[in-house]
């Protein structure tokens, strides 16, 4: 049992670590939000599962935490990226490819 819990905790650490690595490697803010959100969500859930196996009597509260993380994490990421989009931050695109980004009405004057 202890071993299974350790595996989950380790998995959580690995995913969080990959998320942090993504923050360093990705070229712009949208791609960074992507990697960080997904990795942090699954990483946190893996931590919670590991903690639940170590302390079975905590499971009800861990379920509440997991549910709240699953609901609030994507909302937070979307809100930040929406603010960036409205503020006019353009996503990075591969140099040389065409930028097929749809524009806000107020941004149609882009060259």
């Amino acid at each position: 049992m202890r071993l299974v819990a350790d595996i989950f905790l380790l998995l959580g650490a690995v995913f969080c670590c990959l998320g942090a690595l993504g923050l360093v490697r990705m070229p712009d803010v949208y791609t960074r939000i992507q990697t960080a959100t997904k990795a942090a969500t699954l990483g946190a859930l893996a931590f919670l599962i590991g903690a639940g196996i170590l302390h079975p009597d905590w499971w009800t509260k861990l379920v509440v935490i997991a549910g709240l993380i699953l609901l609030t994490n994507p909302v937070g990421s979307s809100t930040i990226s929406r603010a960036l989009y409205i503020a006019g931050v353009r996503p990075w695109h591969v140099p040389g490819s065409d930028d097929c980004t749809p524009l806000l009405d107020s941004q149609q004057d882009k060259p």
């Binding site: 990705m26 070229p27 712009d28 949208y30 989009y85 695109h93 097929c100 749809p102």
Partner: peptide
């Protein structure tokens, strides 16, 4: 770094 990001 295989990415081709775009907004759709």
């Amino acid at each position: 770094l295989p990415i081709r990001p775009a907004l759709v």
